[in-house]
Design a protein around this nucleic acid. Structure first.
Lengths: 209, 209
DNA sequence: CTAATATTTTACCAACTGGTCAACTAAAGG
DNA sequence: CCTTTAGTTGACCAGTTGGTAAAATATTAG
């Protein structure tokens, strides 16, 4: 019943585009509306607040990242090494294309918002935390596989190691954005392959805390 | 001649405190002034803009980070492994104390601003790029030493490896902030010790780009 | 003591912030 | 066809944004 429209989707996509290339606080509701070709009243018909829009935008980019990158890579029958390499190459190519079309390495949408908003919005922090957890779980399966294949040492702690890999990837992208140089990702990419946190180390760390 | 005052320093310290725990755009000139106990007119007597204050705040935290952490650690006669461990422990302790007094892991002042502003303010981006470069040069000396000691393999590329270490540290802190858990730094810290980008890999990456 | 100078204060600005509301309009279902 | 429902519009709000300008006030060196 009633009318239908794609205003909602337009707004989410505008948020991904604008907030993704600048920052949460640098983009106002007004600009979001202009970019989506929508009046402010419509915005608040669909979303209670800019924050809620952002939450939905996070859901969408995570869904797309899984569908376009994570699932194809990790469900393939490639070797564990190839899987990591494909993931890294995809990140490089994405940041590279962003620089080509915006002039800037825009970085990771999750990392960007995490650092900007984690101390100010618990809901957004929690959502990104959950995304990083899921992402880590993807990598963990490959780490386990890599241990079985002997590519990583037997004392490897898969949860800690896969989390270290996510950290390293986010750090690489952070440097790539800071240097505005997508090439940073190529240069540093192979570092992930060397990360392996051992069970012993993790246990020590926990007991020391 | 004329009056003297510590208004300037107060404002820089307020910027470090407030922008450091929230974000650049989340903190206004007004709030900065209130925190420093100063009127807005005084603010603009000392700084042409909020942006310029931020630039000076970056200078100061970098100077303090060098004096309080980098110099003591890297000029000591500790082993290379101990140097890395001390650096990591210091990061953990700092984030931990931040959480104790603000309720939040506030992250790295450089990484925070880099992700928030790199695409919007070239001057700030450049300054943080330079800071990361200097930091990398500190680590590079230790990496060279580590190669000589046989702690890292002989084919290690020290510039690339030290940059990978900075990336990893920034990534760890990013995850620590996202999970609001300083313990993340302890858990993942040992990963740095395993990073070593080889000369061959770097050459390949460059030729492929 | 005074004159030069540095700092502080107050009042002000236009533009913009996120958000509200009631009136209006298009369309889909029965 | 017509009612119900969903979507759209534009006017509006109070509060805040970064920033300005000039007058008032300390202070210090000579």
């Amino acid at each position: 019943m009633g009318r239908t429209s794609d205003t909602r989707e337009n707004l989410i996509n505008s948020a991904i585009e604008l907030i993704g290339t600048r920052s949460y606080n640098a983009v106002g509701v007004q600009e979001l509306c202009e970019h989506a070709g929508v009046k402010k009243g419509s915005f608040y018909h669909f979303f209670p607040s800019k924050r809620d829009l952002t939450l939905e935008a996070l859901d969408l980019i995570w869904k797309k990242f899984k569908e376009d990158t994570l699932d194809p890579v990790f469900n393939s029958d490639a070797s564990t090494l190839e899987k990591f390499e494909t993931l890294l190459r995809t990140s490089y190519e994405y940041q590279s294309s962003r620089k080509d079309c915006t002039g800037c390495v825009t970085g990771c949408g999750f990392g960007n918002l995490a650092l900007e908003l984690s101390t100010q919005d618990e809901g957004i922090r929690k959502k990104i935390e959950e995304i990083f957890c899921e992402w880590t779980r993807y990598l963990e399966r490959v780490v386990v596989q890599a241990v079985e294949e002997g590519v990583l040492p037997p004392e490897t702690d898969p949860p800690a190691t896969s989390q270290a890999m996510v950290a390293y990837i986010e750090g690489m992208i952070l440097l790539g954005k800071t240097f505005n140089d997508p090439y940073m990702l190529k240069r540093l990419g192979d570092g992930v392959l060397q990360l392996s946190i051992s069970k012993k180390e993790t246990a020590e760390a926990y007991s020391a805390g």
